[in-house]
Simulated scan of single mutants.
Amino acid sequence: MKKGIILGFLLLGINAFSQSNEAKVRELISITRSDRMLSIGFKEFMDHYNNKYKDLPDNFWDEFKKDMAPERIVTLYIPIYKKYFSDADIDELIKFYKTPAGQKLIENMPSLMTESTEVTNKFVEAFNKKVNDKINEHYHFQNPPPPAR
């Protein structure tokens, strides 16, 4: 009987810790505006299709909006955050993102990501050309190839 009671309290404690950790993860997601960024991304996704298919009915996206509700996505994110961050890590991240520097990072993250992606794409394109040019030189390939005989 004592073992059963002790086991019950242990499980209750683990459950309380898990809920506490989940609440902290939710707070971190909220502070970093990850849920809002997802909503913006979904809006851009809808705009893309609305521009491509101009005759979509107004209620076309209603079903999909339920699937993309921020709360649903947050629920998907929680296990991922819990996998990579301890409770102490989450506490430290929350502290950081509440600072002026953390808030500035959050505010500028969309622009940072956009510009970083553009720079990376240009770099990779140039790098790829350099590699292909070197391969063509190594194998004495010509562009355009010589005429067939």
Rank of each mutant, 00 (worst) to 15 (best):
K82R: 15
I31F: 07
Y139P: 00
I94L: 03
I40S: 11
K3I: 00
F45Q: 03
G41C: 12
T120F: 12
K104M: 12
T75H: 01
E115M: 07
E22T: 15
Y97E: 08
A101H: 05
A101I: 06
T117E: 10
K83T: 08
R26W: 05
K95V: 15
L105D: 11
K129A: 13
D89A: 10
K52V: 08
I90P: 02
R26A: 11
E125I: 03
K3N: 00
M109L: 12
I94S: 02
Y49E: 12
F45R: 01
V119N: 10
G8C: 15
P110A: 00
F60V: 03
P144K: 01
K54G: 03
M109V: 06
K130A: 14
I40K: 12
E44C: 09
K82C: 12
K24W: 03
K134T: 13
N21L: 07
Q103E: 02
N128H: 05
Y49K: 11
E71C: 09
P57L: 09
F127V: 01
E44S: 15
S18N: 11
G8N: 09
Q19D: 14
N121Q: 08
K129L: 13
H48W: 13
K122L: 04
N143L: 00
P57R: 10
N51Y: 06
N143W: 00
I90G: 03
P57C: 06
Q103A: 01
V25I: 15
E44P: 03
K98E: 10
A69T: 07
L12T: 14
G8P: 03
I31D: 05
E118C: 06
E71I: 10
K104V: 08
K95C: 11
F60C: 04
K82G: 07
G102W: 08
K122V: 02
L28F: 15
A16L: 10
P110S: 01
Y77I: 13
T120W: 05
L56S: 09
H140T: 04
M1W: 05
Q19S: 11
I90Y: 07
K82F: 12
I14D: 09
Y81V: 01
L38N: 08
K134M: 13
Y77S: 06
P79A: 09
S111A: 14
F42G: 02
G102Y: 10
V25E: 08
E63A: 10
Q19I: 10
R36P: 02
E44V: 12
N121G: 01
A88W: 02
K65I: 12
K83F: 09
K130M: 14
G13C: 03
Y139K: 00
F123G: 01
A126R: 02
F17M: 14
R26D: 11
F45N: 02
E63F: 08
E27H: 11
K104Q: 14
K98W: 05
P70L: 04
F9I: 03
L105P: 06
E63V: 09
K134D: 14
E125C: 01
N59F: 07
H140A: 05
M46I: 09
F96W: 09
S34T: 06
N50H: 05
E71A: 15
E92Q: 13
F96N: 09
V131T: 02
D133P: 02
K129W: 13
N21I: 02
D47S: 12
L112H: 08
Q103V: 00
G4L: 06
K83H: 11
F64A: 01
T99W: 04
I40H: 07
A16D: 07
F17W: 15
S116I: 07
E125T: 05
N21G: 04
D58A: 13
K104I: 04
K134Y: 12
I106L: 06
I14M: 13
